[in-house]
Write a protein that binds this DNA or RNA. Structure first.
Lengths: 195, 195
DNA sequence: CCACTGATTTGAACACCGTTCAGAATATGA
DNA sequence: TCATATTCTGAACGGTGTTCAAATCAGTGG
C-alpha cells in the first residue's frame, strides 16, 4: 500500500530487501569486496545487523542476489544490442564493448559476478542468466564465423569471453586504452578463427 | 647454526618466516583466499597470533610475500622454457601453457597474484618479477610476429596474457579441455594478429 | 472491531578475525 | 659475563558473520 511514502516506521519499512540490495551495490562499488561487510550494509540501511538474514539468509545470499541482478542486466543489455541491425562481426564487437562498459559502470558488482566461491550456486536467477549471457555471445559468434564447426564456434566464443574478462580484470593499462584494445582483440580473434 | 635440527625451542625456532610462508601457501591452496586467515597460519605454525607481524607487518605483507614468490617462480619457469630451441610461435604457446600449469599447481597462490587490492604495491620483489613475467611474453611475441609494429606486438602480448588469465580464472569448462583450449587460443590470436 | 497468526525486525550473545603493545625469552657480541 | 637487540607470547580491543529469543507490526477471520 504505502509504497513510495517515507512513512517507514521502525519495523516493516516497506521494502527492506530492495533497499539492502541497493546499499550492497553502492558499498561494493565504493569499497570493493574487501571493504564490504554485511553489518555496514545494515548500517547504511539504518537497520539492525541481523535484519538482512531474514531476506538473504547470510552474506553469501546477499552477494548472490547482487550478482544475479548483474547478470540479468547484462543479458538485458546484450539483447538490446542484438536487436540493432549490424554486421555479424560488429555485433560480436558490440557485445564485447558492452561487457567492458558494464564493468566500468559498476566495477564492484562486476568483480563478484564471476567469483564463484562467493556465490550460492543454487540461486535460480543466477543459474538462468549467467549461462544465457554466454549463450548470446555464442550465438553472435556463430553468425560471425558461420563456416566454422559448431564446436569451434563455441570454442571461439569462450576465448572471446575469457579475453574480455582478462582485459577488464587484469587492468594491464589505463582504462582509456581499454576500449580500443577490446575492439581490436575481438577482431583479431575473429580474424584468426576465420582463417 | 642449528638449522635443520628439530631442536626448536618455544622462542626463536630458526626460520619462522619461511615456515609461515609455507603454511600460508598451503592454506591458500587448501581453502582459497576466502578461508585464509593470519591466525590460522600462525596456528599451523604452532605460534602465537601476533608472531607473523614481526616478519610481515600484517596480513597484506604476508600475502604480498607469497605473491612475490609466485611471480619469481613463474619468471624462472618462463626463462627455463625460453632456453629451449623452438619456433617463435611454439615458444609463445609454451609460455601460455606454463601459465596454466602454474595455476593448476598452486591455484590459491595464483588467485592472489593478480588481486592488486590484496597486495602491497611497495614490495620490491613483486615490482621486479611481475613486470618481468609480462616482458618475457612480450619478447616472445615480438619474435613470433616480427613484421608487426612494436606497439602492436605489445598489444598482442597483453591480449594473450588476458586471454590466458580469463580462461584460467573463469573456468568455463573442466580442466581437461583447458590445456587444449589455451594452445588453440594462443595460435588463433597469433594468426589473427599476423594477417 | 478485535484477537490471532505469521512475517519482520531487534538486541544480545558467541566465536572468530586482524592488529597493537607491554613484557618475557632467547640470541648476540663486547 | 653482562648488556642489548631480536623474536615471540599473551592479553586486549574493535570489528566481523551468525544465531536466537523476544518484540513489533500487518493482515485476516471471526
Amino acid at each position: 500500500m504505502k509504497r513510495d511514502e517515507t512513512e517507514r516506521t521502525a519495523y516493516h519499512h516497506g521494502d527492506l530487501r530492495r533497499e539492502l540490495l541497493l546499499h550492497a551495490v553502492e558499498l561494493l562499488d565504493d569499497r570493493g569486496i574487501e571493504g564490504f561487510s554485511l553489518r555496514e550494509v545494515a548500517r547504511r540501511a539504518s537497520v539492525a545487523p541481523a535484519a538482512p538474514s531474514h531476506h538473504f539468509g547470510n552474506v553469501t545470499g546477499l552477494l548472490t542476489a547482487v550478482a544475479a541482478d548483474g547478470f540479468q542486466r547484462l543479458v538485458a543489455e546484450f539483447e538490446t544490442l542484438l536487436r540493432k541491425k549490424r554486421s555479424p562481426e560488429r555485433h560480436v564487437v558490440a557485445l564485447c564493448e558492452a561487457y567492458v562498459k558494464h564493468h566500468r559502470a559498476s566495477p564492484g558488482v562486476f568483480s563478484i559476478m564471476f567469483r564463484r566461491e562467493l556465490l550460492d550456486d543454487g540461486n535460480e536467477t543466477l543459474n538462468e542468466f549467467k549461462p544465457k549471457s554466454l549463450q548470446l555471445l555464442i550465438d553472435s559468434v556463430r553468425n560471425a564465423i558461420p563456416d566454422a564447426t559448431p564446436d569451434k564456434q563455441v570454442h571461439v566464443a569462450k576465448i572471446l569471453w575469457a579475453t574480455m574478462h582478462g582485459l577488464v580484470t587484469l587492468r594491464l593499462d589505463d582504462s582509456d586504452e581499454l576500449s580500443s584494445r577490446v575492439a581490436f582483440a575481438a577482431r583479431t580473434i575473429l580474424a584468426g578463427a576465420a582463417r
